[in-house]
Write a protein that binds this DNA or RNA. Structure first.
Lengths: 201, 201
DNA sequence: CCCCGGGCGGGACAAATGTCCCACCCGGTG
DNA sequence: CACCGGGTGGGACATTTGTCCCGCCCGGGG
């Protein structure tokens, strides 16, 4: 029996997936969590063979949780399940030691299959997605540029950002300008959108 | 046997929900579509008792499809199922003649229950959501303000917007300024975010 | 008939944004 | 040691954005 931990914040999705996996007679969902902060604790308690992690979760995200699990429970295979096949997400998932990366667009049948395959040690990745990730390349942004861009994304002004990040307004300007330049966009909004689309935030 | 049409673009979600509903012994999913444009045609062909519609779908969205169904197949009850409980969505859903409005956050058990209840003629709406929709009020934006704000949301400059909407730059400026004023925000980014959050776009 | 709101546009102005310089500090690397 | 990239800031400047006027046209309601 394959023991699975399911981490997904959307209740209906979580419940439906759990039900679906439990229908398989070699799979058992031993734990469900709806918040990123509960992943590691629950995993340590329930010792799953596979952790199925959503990326966009409140609290500690799926990618960070994956890295945590890698460290605290290395025998547990991590399978990322996400809405968005962003290149940067895939890259970070691999760096965090995930064994598989599944997008929610695909057919349900893929899911149980992917669980079995990561447990056998296989890597489960959509080839088209892998190609996209490689062709997009890694993020060109430095840490600070990423911070500033992420903070700017909600409509904050320069002075808002400088206050929140404890930087001078000049510095914020410079980082924004440089992020805009590196992303080849025309203003902070386009830059933030592109960075988000590529999974760089 | 309750015949259900399921419209949802995310493959895994659609499959899981269909499977879940089919487990109920008084419910049968007679059709599944992953694109808004197929809703009405499929409904006319399969004559479902209840249409379960996602709002964010490629092609014709769930709200527009709901209105279409109301007209073309009035005996079919519409149940909206959405990720975001935006006040404006709920308002528009009701105006489009939907009989229920469910958010995907809730427990799976709610789903089959909601299907049965809308079929009995009941209205299924989360009371907290209804209160939020009423307290938020209807959109203060005029049609043009909405168009301009929606076009501005992706980082377009004034001249981009004016070109795309066949308006002069002055007019675009004026609409943006007025939308910013009405939303009580400080710039187009905040205005667009607030409008989107409230389901006004 | 008058008024009002909405669509459309012009002009002038202030504020915010984006660009391109400059400078300094620091840690790592050849 | 010299160099380089990253983090941090300043200053000057052009462009864009946002605001507040103004005007015109139209249709609907009192």
């Amino acid at each position: 029996m394959i023991k699975v931990l399911l981490a997904e914040d959307q209740g209906m999705m979580r419940g439906a997936l759990a039900l679906l996996l439990n229908l398989e007679d070699d799979i058992e969902v031993v734990a469900q969590v709806g918040h990123g902060d509960e992943v590691v604790d629950t995993a340590l308690r329930t010792r799953p063979d596979v952790a199925l992690l959503d990326i966009e979760m409140p609290g500690r995200g799926g990618l960070d949780s994956a890295a945590d699990l890698r460290e605290r429970l290395p025998e547990c295979a991590v399978l990322i399940l996400t809405t968005f096949g962003r290149p940067g997400y895939l890259r970070r998932a691999m760096e965090a030691g995930a064994r598989g990366f599944l997008v929610k667009d695909g057919p349900v049948e893929d899911l149980a299959d992917a669980v079995r395959r990561v447990l056998r040690g296989e890597r489960v990745i959509d080839p088209a997605l892998a190609a996209a990730a490689l062709s997009t390349g890694p993020s060109p942004l430095t840490d600070r540029e990423r911070d500033v861009l992420a903070t700017a994304a909600d409509g904050s002004t320069i002075s808002d950002i400088s206050a929140r990040l404890h930087l001078s307004e000049s510095t914020v300007r410079n980082y924004l300008s440089s992020a805009i330049g590196k992303t080849g966009t025309r203003n902070r909004i386009e830059a933030a959108r592109l960075a988000r689309h590529n999974g760089w935030l």
